[in-house]
Nucleic acid binder design. Structure first.
Lengths: 221, 221
DNA sequence: ACGACTATACTTAGATA
DNA sequence: GTATCTAAGTATAGTCG
């Protein structure tokens, strides 16, 4: 019998012109990279940040242990702790890493709670979509899709933000960590953007995305 | 005849305890991620930034079309251009993307020049290493290894910095782009770090790393 | 547009030098 | 610390529902 598919074909690494093909490839490969990033973080304890803007300017990101902290470290070269000598820095870093590990464990619980809240939001979103269009309902994982905070009831939204903030502050809100990490949650570092929403990726990702409440690939700024 | 190797074994995704094993895995997988990132950028025209800190706090990064611009976009949500309406923003973004493409082409030439300069630096580095130790000479690609600017003659170093800055400013140094991108090259955003050096990864990466001139995995800042 | 499938291309763990 | 090799593990291009 003949083969069911041709299987994977070799492709040249150059701009994909076919737009829908490009969109599919983007989704698949983005997911692949985030998975790899997560694995590297876990396997090697590497701190890292990945930010991806789709060609439609939608943002996706991954960070371990905390994307903002990683970016800040990158930008400051951990310079905010200058003054201490190398040994002191080493000690600080050891403590910091230890706490990151602890935080890692706590994520499990928080993720569950967040997942529940997201589920609620997604239900509402589904219902809205069904009532506004004939499109099929999304079935992907919650973390693959930005979730509109707008969709959450005010109180649920607050809970969600709290959960995020708590998680973030678990590590950040300590005297010496305040020197390494600064700012609180996204609102302070990502000011006044209309149609702001938050998204998460599988592991430890606190990112910020821009788009409209319909999930369009609109010009999301 | 028996098999030469066992081949790849399945591993659990959990912290690798064996330190040298971890180091090897880190290098391999980091390279893998950067390659994937480069492919995603090219295939889908995605703007992206990847920052990785090794557990020894060495930094590696990748950015397309410009890591600093991507980070800034992420942090600001392109907010610096607020005031304009959506349509105007769309036009700006189209222009911006177009210029990114142009810049992309110019990179070819600049890369050659930089490669030459790097080659000089590497020669010197090799000679130093040979005279100070019996270690074998590095044979990897120049972009895989941070290069000490210290190793460059003052004038060459200046050329190198100029090349980087020119490239960066090709896009950044326009009236409306000044609103989107800001700052110049690393020195301004990564202040006074001892033993500062620059590194590049295969595609369009302008990053900054911290370490000593011997490439040690010291506590790098 | 998205998910499942599957043959194939690609990545990589472990061993070795 | 790195480079290379190979078998086996994974990611994914194209296709179909």
């Amino acid at each position: 019998m003949s083969k069911k598919t041709q299987g994977r074909k070799k492709i040249e690494i150059k701009r994909i012109e076919n737009s829908s093909n490009k969109q599919v490839t983007f989704s698949k490969r983005r997911a692949g990279i985030f998975k790899k990033a997560g694995e590297l973080s876990v396997l090697c304890g590497a701190h890292m940040a990945v930010i991806v803007f789709s060609s439609a300017n939608k943002v996706f990101c991954y960070g371990h242990p905390d994307i903002h902290a990683v970016i800040e470290s990158y930008q400051n070269g951990l310079n905010s702790v200058v003054g201490a000598d190398d040994k002191a820095q080493e000690v600080l870093m050891a403590e910091y890493n230890k706490e990151c590990e602890e935080k890692h464990k706590e994520e499990g619980e928080l993720k569950k709670k967040m997942a529940e809240m997201k589920a609620k939001a997604n239900e509402k979103k589904m219902m809205m979509e069904m009532s506004t269009s004939g499109n099929q309902v999304r079935e992907g994982f919650w973390w693959d899709e930005p979730v509109d905070l707008v969709m959450l009831e005010e109180r649920e939204r607050e809970q969600y933000m709290m959960a995020l903030e708590t998680l973030r502050n678990k590590v950040a809100d300590k005297a010496h960590h305040k020197k390494i990490l600064s700012g609180t949650i996204a609102e302070t570092s990502v000011p006044a953007v209309h149609r702001l929403y938050h998204m998460m990726t599988p592991n430890n990702c606190f990112g910020t995305g821009f788009g409209d409440q319909y999930g369009n690939h609109g010009f999301g700024i």
